[in-house]
Design a protein around this nucleic acid. Sequence first.
DNA 1: GTTCTAGAAC
DNA 2: GTTCTAGAAC
Length: 151
Amino acid sequence: MSWSNALVKEILKPESLIISSEIAVVIADKFPKARHHYLVLPLADIPSIFHLNRSHLPLLEELHLLARNVVEVKGLHWQDFNVGFHAEPSMQRLHLHVVSRDFVSPSLKNKKHWNSFNTELFVPYTSKAFEAGFMRQLEHHEQTKEIEYSG
DNA sequence: GTTCTAGAAC
DNA sequence: GTTCTAGAAC
């Protein structure tokens, strides 16, 4: 098992789960890029955003609900967070980032780290905009094998 | 994804 | 001299 499967392995440990439902879980990012950084992952074996289609919309809503729940459970403020996916994911298993906007952390070490959450490399989950725009782009991706994030 | 580091850039 | 960048990691 290589490093790219670390998340898949992590969510098998009950002690790692902050909150969970029947189809998804929330864990703390092992290398947080801000004071608060959580990951929401489906239990289903979905490797990445590039494996999503419209049939996954209910699952995505569940991930978003758990994102809101973990912020509430931690007594934090939803408006202080960036919630979305990396456009160029490295780790196996789809994971929704829930990261506080302070970006104060020893693990935030270089420009690439910051860019991955603050440029077009970050694909925000913004409900309708996400569903209508990003999902269409995903379908486009399936056709062309190339994605353009126009926002 | 992180760590390490040689060579480049400043 | 210090910072930045890019590539290897068996």
